[in-house]
Nucleic acid binder design. Structure first.
Length: 265
DNA sequence: ATGGTCGCGATGCGA
């Protein structure tokens, strides 16, 4: 079974790339983030014609996550238990479209779009940390209830867990994604029982999944590793390999993220 | 080859 995660940065603008990705890698499951559309705007037909089912949650032009599967799509769950709300200014606090769970071929797949944090002084960083703590709590609960369940926490974590995961440690000093608090929040999810399933198969340094659109970051190899598949012990025991599809970041019309692909027995 | 932001939706915001 082959599962993958990709922050597509608008599914409407990259539906052709998404379907080509499914076919190029013979994917069984694809978790998408930043679809940037409402449910009624999601381009379902190309996926269905390619033989896939889709579950999606999108409230507006921001965020949006989906699970695409050709091995079943059951027990679809919008948001995880205890997922924090967000609302700034006059906006009413809402549970944003950042988490979607579905059982695909016996694996509990979560497509996750962790809040960005924006800056170290921004309230959004507190939201990010609370969101991750709530995810850790929910994830620990799932393992308590079903220790042998294969669970995949896949998505854009918006955290570079180690110094090796950024092109320049100095560049990110004073910015989000590398702060001790964010790294601790990521580590807490790992320590709750969800191992990073891709790192040993995609060693660094210089191994990234995201490159900013500006400043020629991609050709200059100035990236970050922020997209991960974390897995429960039962899933970790089944991992056969992983790779980052750096080719997908090339060319006109690419997302700023590359897909991360995982092979499991 | 991989090339000095992009997408959405409104002229700004979020990443």
């Amino acid at each position: 079974m082959r599962i993958a995660t990709w922050n597509c940065n608008s599914i409407r603008s990259r539906v052709d790339r998404a379907v080509a990705l499914l076919e190029r890698h013979d994917l069984d499951v694809l978790a998408l983030q930043e679809t940037k559309c409402r449910d009624d705007q999601f381009p379902l037909l190309p996926f269905e014609q390619a033989g896939y089912e889709v579950a999606h949650v999108g409230l507006n032009q921001w965020n949006g996550v989906a699970v695409v599967s050709r091995v079943g799509l059951e027990q679809v769950e919008v948001g995880f238990p205890g997922q924090p709300t967000w609302g700034s200014g006059d906006a009413e606090a809402v549970v944003e479209a950042r988490a979607l769970g579905a059982t695909c071929g016996g694996v509990r797949v979560w497509s996750l779009y962790v809040p960005n944090g924006r800056s170290l002084e921004d309230p959004h960083l507190g939201y990010k940390l609370a969101w991750l703590e709530a995810l850790r709590t929910a994830g620990a609960g799932w393992l308590d209830a079903q220790p042998e369940a294969p669970v995949a926490l896949m998505g854009d974590w918006n955290i570079a867990p180690t110094d090796e995961d950024v092109w320049s440690v100095e560049f990110y000093e004073g910015r989000t994604h590398t702060s001790p608090a964010e790294r601790e929040a990521f580590r807490a999810v790992v320590e709750a029982g969800y191992a990073d399933l891709t790192r040993e198969h995609t060693p660094g340094p210089g191994t990234y999944t995201y490159w900013d659109y500006t400043q020629l970051a991609f050709p200059k190899r100035r990236g970050m590793r922020i997209d991960f598949c974390l897995g429960s012990p039962a899933l970790a025991a089944r991992v056969e390999g992983a790779f980052i599809d750096r080719e997908e970041r090339k060319g006109k019309g690419a997302s700023d993220h590359a897909p991360v692909v995982l092979d499991i027995a």
